[in-house]
Design a protein around this nucleic acid. Structure first.
Lengths: 211, 211
DNA sequence: TAGATTGTTAATCGATTAACAATC
DNA sequence: TAGATTGTTAATCGATTAACAATC
Protein backbone atom coordinates (compact mmCIF):
# COMPACT_ATOMS: atom_id res chain seq x y z
CA UNK A 1 0.00 0.00 0.00
CA UNK A 2 1.28 3.48 0.75
CA UNK A 3 4.87 4.00 1.68
CA UNK A 4 6.56 2.11 4.47
CA UNK A 5 6.40 3.58 7.98
CA UNK A 6 9.85 3.85 9.52
CA UNK A 7 10.78 1.94 12.66
CA UNK A 8 11.52 5.20 14.42
CA UNK A 9 7.91 6.24 13.98
CA UNK A 10 6.51 2.87 15.03
CA UNK A 11 8.55 2.96 18.22
CA UNK A 12 6.90 6.23 19.16
CA UNK A 13 3.31 5.14 18.54
CA UNK A 14 2.74 3.35 21.87
CA UNK A 15 4.03 6.42 23.64
CA UNK A 16 1.50 8.65 21.91
CA UNK A 17 -1.18 6.18 22.83
CA UNK A 18 -0.08 6.21 26.44
CA UNK A 19 -0.13 10.00 26.70
CA UNK A 20 -3.50 10.21 25.01
CA UNK A 21 -4.84 7.73 27.55
CA UNK A 22 -3.57 9.93 30.34
CA UNK A 23 -5.22 12.97 28.77
CA UNK A 24 -8.51 11.12 28.64
CA UNK A 25 -8.16 10.20 32.29
CA UNK A 26 -7.57 13.87 32.99
CA UNK A 27 -10.72 14.77 31.03
CA UNK A 28 -8.85 16.77 28.41
CA UNK A 29 -11.04 17.09 25.34
CA UNK A 30 -8.70 18.59 22.79
CA UNK A 31 -5.00 19.21 22.47
CA UNK A 32 -2.71 20.96 20.00
CA UNK A 33 0.54 19.47 18.78
CA UNK A 34 2.31 22.29 20.64
CA UNK A 35 0.70 21.39 23.97
CA UNK A 36 1.34 17.69 23.49
CA UNK A 37 4.93 18.36 22.49
CA UNK A 38 5.49 20.19 25.77
CA UNK A 39 4.15 17.23 27.74
CA UNK A 40 6.05 14.60 25.79
CA UNK A 41 9.33 16.40 25.29
CA UNK A 42 9.34 16.09 21.53
CA UNK A 43 8.84 18.71 18.85
CA UNK A 44 5.35 19.63 17.71
CA UNK A 45 6.61 19.17 14.19
CA UNK A 46 7.51 15.57 14.88
CA UNK A 47 4.10 14.85 16.33
CA UNK A 48 2.35 16.25 13.28
CA UNK A 49 4.68 14.40 10.92
CA UNK A 50 4.23 11.14 12.78
CA UNK A 51 0.46 11.33 12.87
CA UNK A 52 0.21 12.36 9.24
CA UNK A 53 1.79 9.10 8.24
CA UNK A 54 -1.56 7.58 9.07
CA UNK A 55 -3.99 10.33 8.16
CA UNK A 56 -5.10 13.83 9.03
CA UNK A 57 -6.56 13.45 12.48
CA UNK A 58 -6.49 17.10 13.44
CA UNK A 59 -8.28 20.23 12.47
CA UNK A 60 -6.73 23.59 11.68
CA UNK A 61 -7.29 26.15 14.37
CA UNK A 62 -8.54 23.48 16.77
CA UNK A 63 -5.91 20.81 17.23
CA UNK A 64 -6.74 17.19 17.90
CA UNK A 65 -9.76 15.71 19.61
CA UNK A 66 -8.22 13.53 22.28
CA UNK A 67 -10.80 10.77 22.36
CA UNK A 68 -10.96 10.51 18.59
CA UNK A 69 -7.20 10.42 18.19
CA UNK A 70 -6.92 7.86 20.98
CA UNK A 71 -9.35 5.57 19.23
CA UNK A 72 -7.65 6.03 15.89
CA UNK A 73 -4.31 5.19 17.47
CA UNK A 74 -5.84 2.07 18.94
CA UNK A 75 -6.91 1.01 15.47
CA UNK A 76 -3.49 1.74 14.02
CA UNK A 77 -1.86 -0.31 16.76
CA UNK A 78 -4.32 -3.13 16.28
CA UNK A 79 -5.74 -2.74 19.77
CA UNK A 80 -9.31 -2.76 18.51
CA UNK A 81 -9.32 -6.51 18.49
CA UNK A 82 -8.34 -9.40 20.73
CA UNK A 83 -4.94 -11.04 20.40
CA UNK A 84 -4.55 -14.55 21.73
CA UNK A 85 -1.22 -15.41 23.33
CA UNK A 86 0.56 -18.42 24.63
CA UNK A 87 3.59 -18.20 26.87
CA UNK A 88 6.28 -20.78 26.40
CA UNK A 89 8.34 -21.20 29.53
CA UNK A 90 6.40 -21.13 32.80
CA UNK A 91 9.30 -19.99 34.97
CA UNK A 92 9.22 -16.81 37.00
CA UNK A 93 9.31 -14.56 33.96
CA UNK A 94 6.59 -16.44 32.13
CA UNK A 95 4.49 -16.37 35.28
CA UNK A 96 5.11 -12.67 35.75
CA UNK A 97 3.81 -11.99 32.25
CA UNK A 98 0.84 -14.26 32.78
CA UNK A 99 -0.01 -12.36 35.95
CA UNK A 100 0.36 -8.91 34.49
CA UNK A 101 -3.23 -7.76 34.05
CA UNK A 102 -2.16 -4.78 31.97
CA UNK A 103 -1.89 -6.87 28.86
CA UNK A 104 -5.38 -8.27 29.13
CA UNK A 105 -6.76 -4.77 29.52
CA UNK A 106 -5.43 -3.98 26.05
CA UNK A 107 -6.82 -7.11 24.49
CA UNK A 108 -3.84 -9.43 24.78
CA UNK A 109 -5.37 -12.55 26.28
CA UNK A 110 -3.13 -15.29 27.57
CA UNK A 111 -4.63 -18.62 26.67
CA UNK A 112 -2.01 -21.08 27.78
CA UNK A 113 1.37 -21.64 29.41
CA UNK A 114 3.77 -24.32 28.28
CA UNK A 115 6.78 -25.85 29.98
CA UNK A 116 8.98 -28.92 29.96
CA UNK A 117 9.12 -29.16 33.74
CA UNK A 118 6.78 -31.95 34.89
CA UNK A 119 6.35 -30.28 38.28
CA UNK A 120 4.71 -27.28 36.66
CA UNK A 121 2.47 -29.13 34.25
CA UNK A 122 -1.14 -29.24 35.34
CA UNK A 123 -0.79 -26.32 37.72
CA UNK A 124 -2.59 -23.08 37.03
CA UNK A 125 -1.57 -19.45 37.01
CA UNK A 126 -4.64 -17.26 37.25
CA UNK A 127 -6.89 -19.80 35.53
CA UNK A 128 -4.29 -20.40 32.85
CA UNK A 129 -3.27 -24.01 32.65
CA UNK A 130 0.36 -25.01 32.37
CA UNK A 131 0.69 -27.65 29.69
CA UNK A 132 3.53 -29.79 28.41
CA UNK A 133 5.49 -28.45 25.46
CA UNK A 134 4.93 -31.85 23.92
CA UNK A 135 1.36 -30.76 23.36
CA UNK A 136 2.25 -27.30 22.02
CA UNK A 137 2.16 -28.20 18.36
CA UNK A 138 -1.24 -29.83 18.72
CA UNK A 139 -2.57 -26.96 20.78
CA UNK A 140 -1.53 -24.35 18.22
CA UNK A 141 -3.16 -26.27 15.43
CA UNK A 142 -6.46 -26.52 17.31
CA UNK A 143 -6.57 -22.98 18.70
CA UNK A 144 -6.41 -19.58 17.09
CA UNK A 145 -3.27 -18.14 18.67
CA UNK A 146 -1.57 -15.04 17.24
CA UNK A 147 1.41 -14.54 19.48
CA UNK A 148 3.86 -16.81 21.28
CA UNK A 149 5.88 -15.26 24.09
CA UNK A 150 9.17 -17.08 24.58
CA UNK A 151 10.51 -17.12 28.11
CA UNK A 152 12.60 -20.28 27.99
CA UNK A 153 16.37 -20.51 28.49
CA UNK A 154 18.56 -19.73 25.51
CA UNK A 155 19.34 -23.34 24.68
CA UNK A 156 15.70 -24.31 24.50
CA UNK A 157 14.79 -21.62 21.98
CA UNK A 158 15.69 -23.42 18.77
CA UNK A 159 13.45 -26.42 19.33
CA UNK A 160 10.57 -24.17 20.31
CA UNK A 161 10.96 -22.10 17.16
CA UNK A 162 10.76 -25.22 15.03
CA UNK A 163 7.40 -26.03 16.56
CA UNK A 164 6.15 -22.47 16.18
CA UNK A 165 7.12 -22.17 12.53
CA UNK A 166 5.58 -25.53 11.80
CA UNK A 167 2.36 -24.42 13.48
CA UNK A 168 2.14 -21.18 11.50
CA UNK A 169 2.39 -18.84 14.45
CA UNK A 170 1.97 -15.21 13.38
CA UNK A 171 4.22 -13.45 15.85
CA UNK A 172 6.88 -14.14 18.44
CA UNK A 173 7.53 -12.02 21.50
CA UNK A 174 11.01 -13.09 22.45
CA UNK A 175 12.49 -12.68 25.92
CA UNK A 176 15.43 -15.03 25.44
CA UNK A 177 18.81 -13.33 25.08
CA UNK A 178 19.33 -14.41 21.49
CA UNK A 179 18.48 -13.03 18.07
CA UNK A 180 16.06 -15.38 16.47
CA UNK A 181 15.83 -16.13 12.78
CA UNK A 182 12.40 -16.76 11.38
CA UNK A 183 10.71 -16.66 7.97
CA UNK A 184 9.90 -13.05 7.19
CA UNK A 185 6.16 -13.52 7.40
CA UNK A 186 6.50 -14.10 11.14
CA UNK A 187 6.72 -10.92 13.19
CA UNK A 188 9.43 -10.86 15.85
CA UNK A 189 9.60 -8.44 18.73
CA UNK A 190 12.44 -8.75 21.21
CA UNK A 191 12.68 -7.81 24.86
CA UNK A 192 16.35 -8.11 25.71
CA UNK A 193 16.46 -7.35 29.41
CA UNK A 194 20.18 -7.88 29.74
CA UNK A 195 20.83 -5.57 26.79
CA UNK A 196 18.72 -2.94 28.48
CA UNK A 197 20.66 -3.33 31.71
CA UNK A 198 23.94 -3.09 29.81
CA UNK A 199 22.85 0.16 28.19
CA UNK A 200 22.10 1.47 31.64
CA UNK A 201 25.50 0.29 32.80
CA UNK A 202 27.14 2.01 29.84
CA UNK A 203 25.47 5.31 30.63
CA UNK A 204 26.37 4.97 34.28
CA UNK A 205 30.01 4.33 33.45
CA UNK A 206 30.09 7.12 30.88
CA UNK A 207 28.60 9.52 33.35
CA UNK A 208 30.98 8.68 36.14
CA UNK A 209 33.93 9.22 33.81
CA UNK A 210 32.79 12.68 32.80
CA UNK A 211 32.32 13.92 36.37
CA UNK B 1 35.81 14.39 26.88
CA UNK B 2 35.66 13.38 23.22
CA UNK B 3 32.45 13.75 21.26
CA UNK B 4 29.15 12.32 22.39
CA UNK B 5 28.29 8.78 21.35
CA UNK B 6 24.89 8.58 19.70
CA UNK B 7 22.05 6.57 21.20
CA UNK B 8 21.86 4.48 18.06
CA UNK B 9 25.42 3.30 18.64
CA UNK B 10 24.86 2.63 22.35
CA UNK B 11 21.84 0.50 21.59
CA UNK B 12 24.00 -1.74 19.41
CA UNK B 13 26.82 -2.25 21.90
CA UNK B 14 25.19 -5.03 23.95
CA UNK B 15 24.49 -6.87 20.74
CA UNK B 16 28.15 -6.77 19.72
CA UNK B 17 29.03 -7.99 23.17
CA UNK B 18 26.58 -10.86 22.87
CA UNK B 19 27.90 -11.99 19.51
CA UNK B 20 31.49 -11.77 20.66
CA UNK B 21 30.59 -13.96 23.63
CA UNK B 22 29.12 -16.51 21.25
CA UNK B 23 32.28 -16.43 19.14
CA UNK B 24 34.37 -17.09 22.23
CA UNK B 25 32.15 -20.04 23.13
CA UNK B 26 32.73 -21.31 19.60
CA UNK B 27 36.51 -20.93 20.03
CA UNK B 28 36.83 -18.35 17.28
CA UNK B 29 40.07 -16.46 17.75
CA UNK B 30 39.81 -13.66 15.23
CA UNK B 31 37.11 -12.15 13.05
CA UNK B 32 36.94 -9.51 10.35
CA UNK B 33 34.25 -6.86 10.21
CA UNK B 34 33.01 -8.55 7.03
CA UNK B 35 32.58 -11.93 8.72
CA UNK B 36 30.91 -10.38 11.75
CA UNK B 37 28.64 -8.32 9.53
CA UNK B 38 27.41 -11.50 7.84
CA UNK B 39 26.58 -13.06 11.21
CA UNK B 40 24.90 -9.99 12.63
CA UNK B 41 23.08 -8.76 9.56
CA UNK B 42 24.58 -5.30 9.63
CA UNK B 43 27.11 -3.68 7.31
CA UNK B 44 30.81 -4.16 7.92
CA UNK B 45 31.14 -0.43 7.59
CA UNK B 46 28.78 0.14 10.49
CA UNK B 47 30.70 -2.26 12.69
CA UNK B 48 33.98 -0.48 12.00
CA UNK B 49 32.40 2.92 12.50
CA UNK B 50 30.76 1.85 15.76
CA UNK B 51 33.89 0.34 17.22
CA UNK B 52 36.05 3.27 16.18
CA UNK B 53 33.99 5.53 18.38
CA UNK B 54 35.84 3.90 21.24
CA UNK B 55 39.24 3.18 19.76
CA UNK B 56 41.08 1.18 17.15
CA UNK B 57 40.62 -2.38 18.31
CA UNK B 58 41.49 -4.08 15.05
CA UNK B 59 44.54 -4.60 12.94
CA UNK B 60 44.80 -4.12 9.19
CA UNK B 61 45.06 -7.36 7.31
CA UNK B 62 44.06 -9.35 10.40
CA UNK B 63 40.73 -8.14 11.68
CA UNK B 64 39.78 -8.22 15.34
CA UNK B 65 41.00 -10.49 18.09
CA UNK B 66 37.76 -11.82 19.55
CA UNK B 67 38.86 -12.20 23.15
CA UNK B 68 40.53 -8.80 23.24
CA UNK B 69 37.56 -7.04 21.67
CA UNK B 70 35.19 -8.84 24.02
CA UNK B 71 37.10 -7.62 27.03
CA UNK B 72 37.31 -4.10 25.69
CA UNK B 73 33.57 -4.10 25.10
CA UNK B 74 33.04 -5.25 28.66
CA UNK B 75 35.04 -2.26 29.87
CA UNK B 76 33.11 0.12 27.64
CA UNK B 77 29.83 -1.27 28.94
CA UNK B 78 31.04 -1.06 32.52
CA UNK B 79 30.83 -4.82 32.98
CA UNK B 80 34.31 -5.01 34.48
CA UNK B 81 32.95 -4.12 37.86
CA UNK B 82 30.10 -5.08 40.15
CA UNK B 83 26.84 -3.14 40.15
CA UNK B 84 24.66 -3.37 43.22
CA UNK B 85 20.91 -3.37 42.64
CA UNK B 86 17.77 -3.20 44.65
CA UNK B 87 14.39 -4.13 43.27
CA UNK B 88 11.42 -2.11 44.40
CA UNK B 89 8.23 -4.08 44.07
CA UNK B 90 8.42 -7.74 45.03
CA UNK B 91 5.52 -8.88 42.87
CA UNK B 92 5.89 -11.49 40.16
CA UNK B 93 7.96 -9.26 37.91
CA UNK B 94 10.31 -8.19 40.70
CA UNK B 95 10.69 -11.81 41.71
CA UNK B 96 11.33 -12.86 38.15
CA UNK B 97 14.17 -10.36 37.89
CA UNK B 98 15.54 -11.41 41.26
CA UNK B 99 15.58 -15.00 40.08
CA UNK B 100 17.18 -14.37 36.73
CA UNK B 101 20.75 -15.57 37.23
CA UNK B 102 21.86 -14.00 33.96
CA UNK B 103 22.22 -10.62 35.55
CA UNK B 104 24.46 -11.82 38.35
CA UNK B 105 26.72 -13.50 35.82
CA UNK B 106 27.40 -10.07 34.33
CA UNK B 107 28.08 -8.43 37.68
CA UNK B 108 24.63 -7.06 38.46
CA UNK B 109 24.10 -8.23 42.02
CA UNK B 110 20.68 -7.93 43.59
CA UNK B 111 21.07 -6.89 47.20
CA UNK B 112 17.53 -6.34 48.34
CA UNK B 113 13.85 -6.43 47.46
CA UNK B 114 11.37 -3.90 48.77
CA UNK B 115 7.60 -3.96 48.94
CA UNK B 116 4.65 -2.42 50.75
CA UNK B 117 2.81 -5.69 51.12
CA UNK B 118 3.21 -6.95 54.71
CA UNK B 119 2.70 -10.54 53.58
CA UNK B 120 5.85 -10.39 51.51
CA UNK B 121 8.06 -8.62 54.00
CA UNK B 122 10.54 -10.91 55.73
CA UNK B 123 10.30 -13.60 53.08
CA UNK B 124 13.27 -14.39 50.91
CA UNK B 125 13.76 -14.86 47.19
CA UNK B 126 16.98 -16.74 46.56
CA UNK B 127 18.67 -15.43 49.73
CA UNK B 128 17.47 -11.91 49.00
CA UNK B 129 15.38 -10.51 51.80
CA UNK B 130 12.15 -8.68 51.10
CA UNK B 131 12.06 -5.51 53.19
CA UNK B 132 9.50 -2.82 53.82
CA UNK B 133 9.66 0.23 51.57
CA UNK B 134 9.53 2.21 54.80
CA UNK B 135 13.12 1.14 55.34
CA UNK B 136 14.24 1.85 51.76
CA UNK B 137 15.57 5.33 52.41
CA UNK B 138 17.61 4.12 55.37
CA UNK B 139 18.87 1.11 53.48
CA UNK B 140 20.08 3.18 50.54
CA UNK B 141 21.93 5.53 52.81
CA UNK B 142 23.73 2.69 54.57
CA UNK B 143 24.54 0.57 51.52
CA UNK B 144 26.33 1.28 48.28
CA UNK B 145 23.61 0.70 45.71
CA UNK B 146 23.97 1.87 42.11
CA UNK B 147 20.73 0.85 40.50
CA UNK B 148 17.10 0.67 41.57
CA UNK B 149 14.79 -1.49 39.48
CA UNK B 150 11.21 -0.28 39.71
CA UNK B 151 8.55 -2.96 39.37
CA UNK B 152 5.73 -1.34 41.30
CA UNK B 153 2.33 -0.34 39.89
CA UNK B 154 2.12 2.98 38.07
CA UNK B 155 0.49 4.84 40.94
CA UNK B 156 3.22 3.89 43.39
CA UNK B 157 6.03 5.19 41.22
CA UNK B 158 6.03 8.85 42.26
CA UNK B 159 6.52 8.22 45.96
CA UNK B 160 9.30 5.73 45.24
CA UNK B 161 11.09 8.22 43.02
CA UNK B 162 11.04 10.80 45.81
CA UNK B 163 12.84 8.38 48.08
CA UNK B 164 15.34 7.41 45.39
CA UNK B 165 16.24 10.98 44.49
CA UNK B 166 16.57 11.86 48.14
CA UNK B 167 18.90 8.90 48.64
CA UNK B 168 21.14 9.84 45.71
CA UNK B 169 20.52 6.74 43.66
CA UNK B 170 22.67 6.69 40.53
CA UNK B 171 20.41 4.89 38.10
CA UNK B 172 16.84 3.70 37.73
CA UNK B 173 15.76 0.71 35.69
CA UNK B 174 12.10 1.39 35.19
CA UNK B 175 9.52 -1.29 34.39
CA UNK B 176 6.45 0.78 35.21
CA UNK B 177 4.46 1.94 32.18
CA UNK B 178 5.18 5.64 32.73
CA UNK B 179 7.86 8.07 31.63
CA UNK B 180 9.68 9.16 34.72
CA UNK B 181 11.20 12.58 35.28
CA UNK B 182 14.41 12.70 37.26
CA UNK B 183 17.29 15.12 37.72
CA UNK B 184 19.62 14.69 34.79
CA UNK B 185 22.44 13.22 36.84
CA UNK B 186 20.32 10.12 37.44
CA UNK B 187 20.43 7.62 34.59
CA UNK B 188 17.07 6.21 33.51
CA UNK B 189 16.56 3.12 31.42
CA UNK B 190 13.04 2.01 30.61
CA UNK B 191 11.61 -1.41 29.87
CA UNK B 192 8.13 -0.75 28.60
CA UNK B 193 6.70 -4.21 28.07
CA UNK B 194 3.30 -3.02 26.95
CA UNK B 195 4.91 -0.66 24.42
CA UNK B 196 6.87 -3.58 23.06
CA UNK B 197 3.74 -5.67 22.76
CA UNK B 198 1.95 -2.82 21.03
CA UNK B 199 4.75 -2.54 18.48
CA UNK B 200 4.36 -6.21 17.83
CA UNK B 201 0.63 -5.73 17.47
CA UNK B 202 1.17 -2.86 15.04
CA UNK B 203 3.44 -4.97 12.85
CA UNK B 204 0.99 -7.84 12.97
CA UNK B 205 -1.87 -5.60 11.91
CA UNK B 206 0.20 -3.93 9.21
CA UNK B 207 1.23 -7.28 7.83
CA UNK B 208 -2.26 -8.67 7.71
CA UNK B 209 -3.47 -5.63 5.82
CA UNK B 210 -0.84 -5.93 3.13
CA UNK B 211 -1.54 -9.60 2.41
C1' DT C 1 -13.79 37.63 10.00
C1' DA C 2 -9.33 37.04 12.63
C1' DG C 3 -6.64 33.82 15.11
C1' DA C 4 -5.06 29.41 15.70
C1' DT C 5 -3.20 25.40 14.26
C1' DT C 6 -2.97 21.88 11.06
C1' DG C 7 -0.91 19.33 6.98
C1' DT C 8 2.87 19.44 4.08
C1' DT C 9 6.90 21.08 1.59
C1' DA C 10 11.58 22.57 2.08
C1' DA C 11 15.87 22.87 4.83
C1' DT C 12 18.80 20.89 8.09
C1' DC C 13 20.84 17.66 10.66
C1' DG C 14 22.54 13.12 11.78
C1' DA C 15 23.31 8.36 10.81
C1' DT C 16 24.55 4.88 7.55
C1' DT C 17 27.04 3.26 3.69
C1' DA C 18 30.70 3.44 0.30
C1' DA C 19 35.29 4.10 -0.94
C1' DC C 20 40.02 3.99 -0.37
C1' DA C 21 44.56 5.22 1.44
C1' DA C 22 47.15 3.50 5.32
C1' DT C 23 49.28 -0.39 7.21
C1' DC C 24 49.73 -4.87 9.28
C1' DT D 1 56.48 -8.48 -0.59
C1' DA D 2 51.47 -9.11 -1.79
C1' DG D 3 47.02 -9.59 0.14
C1' DA D 4 43.86 -8.52 3.47
C1' DT D 5 41.47 -5.59 6.19
C1' DT D 6 41.38 -1.78 9.09
C1' DG D 7 40.50 3.25 10.24
C1' DT D 8 38.68 7.21 8.32
C1' DT D 9 37.05 10.53 4.97
C1' DA D 10 33.52 11.47 1.65
C1' DA D 11 28.90 10.49 -0.33
C1' DT D 12 24.34 9.10 0.38
C1' DC D 13 20.38 8.33 2.58
C1' DG D 14 16.82 9.04 5.98
C1' DA D 15 14.87 11.30 9.86
C1' DT D 16 14.01 15.52 12.27
C1' DT D 17 13.02 20.29 12.40
C1' DA D 18 11.55 24.63 10.45
C1' DA D 19 8.53 27.27 7.79
C1' DC D 20 4.34 28.52 5.88
C1' DA D 21 0.26 28.23 2.92
C1' DA D 22 -4.20 26.12 3.60
C1' DT D 23 -8.15 26.12 6.27
C1' DC D 24 -11.05 25.46 10.24
Amino acid sequence: MEQEISKAVIRRLPRYYRYLGELIDADVERISSAELSAKMNVTASQIRQDLNNFGGFGQQGYGYNVKYLYNEMAKILGLDRVHNLVIIGAGKLGQAIANYSFFEKRGFIIRGLFDVNKDYIGRKIKDIEIMSVDTLSDYLKKNDIDIAAITVPKDAVESILDILVDSNIKAVWNFAPVDIELPENIIVENVHLLDSLMQLSYNLTEYEQTV
